[in-house]
Design a protein around this nucleic acid. Structure first.
Length: 113
DNA sequence: CCCATGACTGAAG
DNA sequence: TCTTCAGCCATGG
């Protein structure tokens, strides 16, 4: 454990704020944290959140809506299963209607579809 | 300290 | 519109 995981914790908090049946991108979280250039670090933090069940990393995908991190989850299609379980349709490791279910952490005010 | 990797993004061809 | 390149920044060896 590290005490300098402040950055990671921030990512975790944003991820936990993702509503049910919604997804977001690494860049959106990074930008919200003020580190738009550190989108990869967000993914890195997600990787570190592997033991944190409180972090719905499966709701976080890349800007293309592709389940880029699916390969890092347990099993082969756990991420997809979790998303589909929340009503999110996934096709070929990609989220369908990604823009429709996309949740913006910086504008979650009127994101209530 | 320098080099390599990575769950990304944006710009250029 | 799709494909390819480079930038970015933190972590690890």
């Amino acid at each position: 454990m590290k005490k300098s995981d402040n950055f990671f914790e921030k990512v975790y908090e944003v991820a936990r704020q993702i509503p049910y049946g919604r997804v977001t991108s690494y860049g959106a979280i990074a930008k919200y944290l003020g580190a738009a250039r550190s989108a990869r670090m967000v993914g890195w933090a997600m990787n570190a959140s592997g033991g944190d069940d409180t972090v719905p990393a499966h709701r976080v995908v890349n800007r293309n809506g592709l389940l880029s991190g699916k390969h890092h989850f347990q099993g082969t299609n756990l991420m997809q299963q979790l998303l589909e379980n929340e009503g999110v349709k996934v096709k070929n490791n990609k989220v369908e209607d990604f823009e429709s279910i996309f949740w913006n952490p910086s504008g979650n005010i009127d994101q209530n579809l």
